[in-house]
Design a protein around this nucleic acid. Structure first.
Lengths: 202, 202
DNA sequence: TAAACCGAACTGACCGGTCAGTACAAATAG
DNA sequence: CTATTTGTACTGACCGGTCAGTTCGGTTTA
């Protein structure tokens, strides 16, 4: 990390944190956090191990901040979708956003999938909140669609919460699955498949 | 599993293997395989550590066989569903079977979820096959439904493979999610929610 | 009798976390 | 203007613990 020809330009205050984020994303996304050591992350980030513990208190905290970082980005994107007047269009946009996000930050999705339902994960609380907020967003879109849609669906409709969870699960899995097993699959067809869930409401 | 060229010996001594399966299921389902040591599994099964290595070559192999064991049970149940004449009813039964199976073997589901999309997992091949077969089953049910259903769905229908994957993901996640976050949620309402995906085909 | 199992000690590698020390820029004092 | 101090970012050797897997003499069971 010593630059011999060091120009007088700013020594780049601290991008160590960002470099560590990027490196962690890459490694953890591909192999899972258990299979990646702190030494390895540090090496990949071009930083010493001590720097990891200087910037983050622990490996767990590093991953926790990675999670916050990703969640913030995701919700920022969802905000646009929430403003769309038509509920169905809004939901469609939200799903597309989610799929794009997953493609862009695969390790976030992987971490989410593997830790979300592990009851005593280090990040159980953070993930439970994340899950809750995403599902609430989907459910409110569904509620709006139901209000706009058929007057009273005679069929004993699955309750909206369950339906919202199903959509959440389908999008999450489909988003990750296409990256691993069907790279040729377009986001469009995935969005359509997930939207099929809303058919009873239209 | 057991050596085929050893028929003369009674295969069923004290079924340590079965006890180890059960114990592993329990522990790994709750905490993840990385967080559970072999010593712990042996202790929980009331068996010595040596027995683990006598019956299985390694921890990884133990889990691999656990996966086979679970997959065999799952497919055995699916077989009944495949015989139902009406495609929609068959699929509905299949989903219900899956949800029950997940409730009964939560660790199988957890392991599946966390390892399926981890590209270099020890069990990547086994899981990829499992995934493929389940999705193929769902797709064939969907194909039958599409054939029985509306003459020609004018809308640019999401292709059946993608739809089948969405259903697979929704059922897997919903099945696991209800155990962790909504124990009060009945299997029935989950089945209905997943079946909502098939609405465009009916 | 031979396969299955016990139990307990042991090995060796790996890994998270620590810590004394370095580098260096900005602030402060003389 | 020079000398000293302070604070921040970072280094990398090292430590303690954990855990998969091994070994082996003795014991049970079909």
């Amino acid at each position: 990390m010593s630059d011999p020809s060091a120009p007088r330009t700013r020594v780049r205050a601290t991008d160590s944190k960002h470099r560590l984020f990027t490196a962690s994303m890459e490694l953890i996304g591909a192999r899972g956090h258990h299979e990646v050591s702190v030494d390895e992350i540090a090496r990949a980030a071009g930083v010493s191990k001590g720097t990891v513990y200087y910037n983050f208190g622990s490996k767990s905290e590093l991953i926790g901040e990675l999670l916050n970082y990703g969640a913030a980005i995701l919700f920022e994107r969802f905000e646009r979708a929430a403003e769309v007047p038509d509920a169905a269009d809004g939901l469609r946009l939200m799903i597309a956003d989610a799929l794009e996000f997953i493609a862009e930050y695969p390790s976030f999705a992987q971490l989410w999938i593997s830790e979300q339902w592990q009851s005593d994960s280090d990040w159980a609380n953070a993930l439970a909140t994340l899950r809750h907020e995403v599902i609430a967003l989907v459910r409110s879109a569904l509620a709006r669609m139901a209000a706009d849609g058929p007057p009273a669906p005679g069929s004993p409709e699955a309750d909206l919460d369950t339906l919202a969870t199903a959509i959440f699960g389908a999008a999450l899995i489909l988003g990750r699955d296409r990256l691993v097993f069907h790279p040729e699959r377009g986001i469009e067809s995935c969005v359509e498949a997930v939207m099929a869930f809303t058919a009873p409401l239209r």
